[in-house]
């Protein structure tokens, strides 16, 4: 691998295809659906930053997604914040929450880490259920979309779509940069052999915490954008099933691949769309996909392709 250098050719091509697709897609496909996919793709990519490149399986990322969604929605609706500031407020909240939760959770390894993040996310869920500003079971509805930079109205789905696509691409490149920076290389070293990384003089806990906060921040960005797009923040966003969906998307697409979570998000959101009227069967099918992936398809879609062409994707 080229280490910390620029994007290799085949990844450049794939990225170019993705940009071209995003530019054309809204004229063919319903933009709100595309925005949903983009929000969840960003969610899964940010989650993958942690599980795929540091080896930390968080089962509580819904707290960052939903927490940011609530703050952004509350900011836009009650405080009348403009679009950018509402997103920023949500993202910053997630970053702070990530700092607190991460500092606690990295004190234990492996399976305990997953259980701790899950338990703390459940605490945030109960908080959201009881706190006065979240609207309880109703959630925060009719969140205004506002104007971009105070000038361009985002009421139009197509306009908002291009803003969301730009945010997504920027965040995607940021994740790419993080993963391929010297910092990212240390993260991978910790994933492969933590005691060895420590003996080489790296403060593993600080690296893990930094990765956790970065991941939480980007998930918060996804959650904030989602609440503005759908003009809704609700308990679904903070529930543990939401964490499970991020895990599922990443697993289906390919843990530890750059493009995998995007593919996973496309597959899972499309599936949910088609199965929506089947009710409980959505959960059952998701469970079956989980089991099938773990037993027979651990590399995920993009992981398998990358193996076939023998190049990292």
């Amino acid at each position: 691998m080229s280490g910390t250098g620029g994007m290799p050719r085949h990844q450049q091509i794939l990225f170019g295809c993705m940009v071209a697709f995003l530019a054309v897609a809204p004229f063919v496909i319903y933009p709100v659906f595309l925005m949903k996919v983009l929000c969840f793709a960003l969610f899964a990519c940010a989650f993958n930053l942690l599980v795929g490149f540091v080896g930390l399986l968080s089962f509580g990322h819904a707290m960052f997604f939903g927490g940011a969604a609530y703050v952004a929605a509350h900011g836009a609706k009650v405080w009348g914040l403009p679009f950018e500031l509402a997103i920023l407020a949500g993202t910053a909240t997630s970053a702070l929450l990530g700092l607190a939760v991460g500092a606690l959770a990295i004190r234990r390894q492996g399976i305990y880490f997953s259980m701790i993040t899950l338990a703390l996310a459940q605490m945030i869920y109960f908080f959201a259920l009881q706190a006065p500003f979240t609207g309880g079971e109703d959630g925060l509805q009719k969140v205004p979309r506002g104007k971009l930079l105070g000038m361009i109205s985002l009421q139009n789905d197509l306009t908002l779509y291009f803003v969301v696509a730009a945010i997504f691409l920027a965040a995607f490149l940021a994740i790419y940069r993080i993963v391929h920076s010297p910092f990212g290389q240390v993260l991978k070293a910790i994933r492969e052999n933590e005691p060895r990384a420590i003996s080489l003089g790296y403060k593993a806990d600080q690296y893990k915490l930094a990765a956790f906060v970065l991941s939480a921040t980007l998930v918060g960005l996804a959650g904030s954008v989602k609440s503005i797009v759908f003009q809704l923040a609700s308990l679904t966003d903070v529930h543990w099933t939401m964490s499970g969906e991020a895990v599922l998307m990443t697993l289906v697409g390919g843990m530890g691949t750059i493009f995998g979570p995007i593919a996973g998000a496309v597959v899972i959101i499309t599936m949910q769309n088609y199965l929506a009227e089947l009710g409980s069967w959505v959960t059952i099918v998701q469970g079956v996909v989980f089991v099938a992936c773990v037993l027979a398809f651990r590399r995920g879609i993009v992981g398998e392709i990358a193996r076939a062409i023998r190049k990292p994707l």
Binding site: L57, G110, V282, G287, F290
Partner: peptide, 22 residues
């Protein structure tokens, strides 16, 4: 990795709960 056991049993839990809810 231990994580796969967690993921598998999570998937089974989703299936079982979904079936009972159905």
């Amino acid at each position: 990795d231990h994580l796969y056991g967690l993921l598998l049993t999570f998937g089974i839990a989703l299936i079982v709960q979904g079936m009972y809810r159905d």
